[in-house]
Amino acid sequence: MADIAHHLFLPATVMALQFAGFPYLVMRAGMVSELGSDYLVLGRAKGLSDRRLKYRYAARNALLPIVNLTGVQLGLAVSGVVIFVETVFAYPGLGRLLFEAVGFQDYPTLQGCFLVLALLVVGVNFLVDAAVARLDPRTVT
């Protein structure tokens, strides 16, 4: 386990840094628009603290798009950047396998890779949709 964590640390950090920016922008935009909402005015009128309003009320609503974004980003991550990160770090993952299969012109392996990628993306998006439905009842029609 320690070995896995040891080898995962740098590649994972690189990927994480790469994907951290976009959620930041989305979260910021979400906060900005939530902060203008009426329910916050009401909350303030009730005498809730600023802190509580921001983090317990506004942030929770602003987080919703982040859940959706996670699905999209995971899709991007498994189908894109892993190829580079795994190549640079010689990490034996799907991206490297795919890259090598291309080099060997190994079509069955390529098909397998694409299938797994597709399943991953579909699966993650399904989970995300289910999670959003649970978190935000408004989306269920």
Binding site: S79, G80, V81, I83, V102, C113, F114, A118
Partner: peptide, 11 residues
């Protein structure tokens, strides 16, 4: 999946 596609086409 854009990148795998590109890798494939490039190769």
């Amino acid at each position: 999946p854009v990148l795998p596609l590109l890798v494939l086409i490039a190769a």
